[in-house]
Amino acid sequence: MTTGAARKEASWSAIVLAAGAGRRFGGRKLLAPFGGGPLIEGALGAAFASPASTIILVTGSDAEEVAAVARAFAEREGQGARLRIVHAADHAEGMGASLRAGAEALPADTAGTFVLLGDMPKVPVAILPRLVEAMEAGAAAAAPVCGGRRGHPVLFGAELLDHLRQAAGDEGARTALAGLGPRLALVETNDDGVLFDVDRPEDLSPA
């Protein structure tokens, strides 16, 4: 069994899924303004605040523009060396395709990876170290819970990475979590930023 000390020495990663077309939004969702910058900057900011040494942004629709925004934001934040951008050519298949692309790009020594959704700009950074603590205590995966609802991001341990590499359709990572039972650590929080996502233009108000 991997000890907590060994996990601390290993490398955490983060995958930011930013490949969706945003059809319900009307397109170009991740480039829409939110909180003083493009929407995608919210999820990227949370990823940069995590202990992940490598941040993998997965693009699909509007790939060149999303990538350009991400690179510019990373450079402004002094985080350019941590950012890696991969393109999911088959992103139209669904979230599973984007997750596969991100998981296949993970460094070989990844102890676990956060999975963040590009349209969730209000993830509280305080939840991130708590997810890591749950993993170091022996969980196979960890996720925040607010008001009885499981939210994002989810932190997946090394033993689940092959499941992520086989994700399909719109199920995303659900199959990787199925059947874990108590090995999925649920971390309580009162911050509903772990639930907030942007589906339609009326969701853009940061209030």
Results as ranks from 00 to 15, higher is better:
24 R>M: 14
65 E>K: 12
36 G>I: 08
59 T>Y: 01
79 Q>F: 05
82 R>F: 00
76 R>Q: 15
61 S>I: 00
83 L>S: 04
53 S>R: 15
31 L>N: 08
80 G>F: 02
62 D>Q: 09
75 E>G: 08
56 I>Q: 14
58 V>C: 08
64 E>R: 15
89 A>E: 12
72 A>Q: 10
14 A>Q: 03
54 T>G: 08
43 A>L: 01
26 G>Q: 12
67 A>Q: 12
39 L>A: 06
41 E>H: 10
44 L>Y: 01
26 G>M: 10
47 A>M: 05
61 S>R: 08
54 T>I: 01
31 L>Y: 07
40 I>H: 11
40 I>V: 15
58 V>G: 04
52 A>D: 04
57 L>F: 08
46 A>T: 12
32 A>D: 12
68 A>H: 13
70 A>D: 09
86 V>F: 03
51 P>E: 13
41 E>S: 10
80 G>V: 00
73 F>Q: 14
41 E>A: 13
51 P>H: 05
27 G>M: 10
50 S>N: 03
25 F>V: 01
83 L>G: 03
78 G>I: 04
12 W>S: 02
62 D>N: 13
18 A>I: 07
66 V>D: 14
57 L>M: 05
50 S>W: 04
87 H>P: 04
22 G>T: 05
13 S>I: 02
77 E>D: 06
84 R>M: 07
16 V>W: 00
26 G>R: 11
11 S>D: 11
54 T>L: 07
83 L>H: 07
63 A>F: 04
57 L>K: 02
89 A>C: 03
33 P>E: 15
40 I>K: 13
17 L>K: 02
48 F>D: 03
30 L>Q: 11
21 A>V: 12
45 G>W: 00
27 G>P: 10
49 A>C: 04
66 V>C: 14
85 I>H: 13
86 V>G: 04
38 P>H: 05
65 E>I: 10
48 F>M: 12
65 E>T: 14
12 W>V: 02
15 I>H: 00
48 F>G: 05
74 A>T: 08
57 L>W: 06
36 G>N: 13
29 K>Q: 15
61 S>W: 09
31 L>C: 09
47 A>R: 06
89 A>Y: 06
25 F>I: 00
57 L>N: 00
16 V>P: 00
31 L>R: 07
70 A>L: 12
29 K>T: 10
87 H>L: 03
34 F>W: 14
43 A>S: 11
85 I>W: 03
29 K>H: 12
52 A>Y: 01
41 E>F: 06
81 A>F: 09
10 A>M: 10
58 V>N: 05
34 F>S: 03
83 L>C: 05
81 A>L: 13
54 T>V: 13
25 F>Q: 04
30 L>S: 11
